[in-house]
């Protein structure tokens, strides 16, 4: 039996009802094992609980049932050391320069200044922010700001990187290029990556495996192995195998997406 890097078993999340509203069953039950060093993406209709899945795995919100294990230890109540999270919203600190944003976590951890400087310089260079080290986030585009957030996470050398639609606000071309950077980061750090996205092409291009989720409460209805080589980039979108993968994902998801839009079962399918 494989020992997973991170594993969810029977994980479900129900939000209790408040002030006359009924309880909401947001997620699961879900079983998922992430293999060390793999790139796994989750796609699904809006509101299906993708982000909830990520927050539960990160220890940011509690699971109602089930167990979460990261590197052999249960995850409960706090974010374990070794997990880094990049959010969909711009989470760069507008009062700090790019350099200080990236150095934030290292300085807090009391890392020795020389070491901090070396690692910050490396992370900034890696994310292509060298010319902007002394700029402030407000002077950067949305894509650049998201890079700052990725660098701020990366510099702490997480072994599991969770990304919650990090490129959701960017245009399609920029997203493909950011995808390339993400692949490079994944290859060079050797980290396990879990990416939440709504873009099927993004998931198909980046991942070793893609999990397709049903409408709320989200469950995995299909897990697609892409079979891409580890050395890959956005040019694979031109390969014929790419269309097969996105096609299979869309076949799984179309019905679910209609449900999420509020259509009756199969009503608009004819």
């Amino acid at each position: 039996m494989t020992v997973f890097h991170a594993e969810l078993a029977g994980v479900a999340r129900t939000y209790p009802g408040v002030a006359g509203h009924p309880a909401v069953h947001a997620l699961g039950p879900v079983d998922l094992g992430l293999v060390r060093g793999e790139f796994f993406s989750v796609v699904g209709p809006s509101g299906c609980g993708k982000s909830t899945l990520l927050e539960v795995l990160a220890g940011l919100s509690p699971a109602s049932t089930g167990t979460i294990v990261f590197e052999g230890a249960p995850v409960a109540g706090a974010v374990p050391d070794g997990i880094g999270v990049v959010f969909q919203e711009d989470a760069s600190f507008p009062w700090l320069s790019v350099w200080d944003n990236v150095a934030f976590g290292l300085r807090r951890a009391g890392i020795e200044p020389g070491e901090t400087e070396r690692r910050v310089r490396e992370a900034i260079a890696f994310m292509g922010l060298k010319d902007f080290a002394h700029a402030y986030p407000a002077q950067l585009s949305g894509g650049m700001r998201q890079r700052v957030c990725i660098a701020r996470t990366l510099v702490l050398r997480p072994r599991l990187i969770l990304l919650d639609e990090p490129f959701g606000a960017l245009d399609a071309q920029t997203r493909l290029l950011m995808g390339d950077e993400l692949l490079r980061l994944w290859r060079e750090t050797g980290a396990t990556v879990l990416l939440i996205t709504h873009a099927l092409d993004e998931a198909a291009m980046l991942s070793d495996r893609v999990g397709a989720m049903s409408a709320r409460p989200g469950r995995f209805i299909d897990i697609v192995e892409t079979g891409w080589p580890r050395e890959r980039d956005s040019r694979i979108v031109a390969q014929s195998g790419f269309g097969k993968i996105t096609g299979r994902l869309w076949t799984s998801l179309r019905e679910e997406s209609l449900k999420a839009l509020g259509h009756a079962h199969g009503a608009a399918a004819g």
């Binding site: 940011l60 706090a78 974010v79 999270v85 959010f87 919203e89 711009d90 989470a91 807090r108």
Partner: peptide, 14 residues
């Protein structure tokens, strides 16, 4: 204060 800052604080175990 953006709500995401709360999550950032928790990922840094502050």
């Amino acid at each position: 204060i953006p709500r995401v800052l709360d999550k950032v604080a928790r990922t840094h175990r502050m």
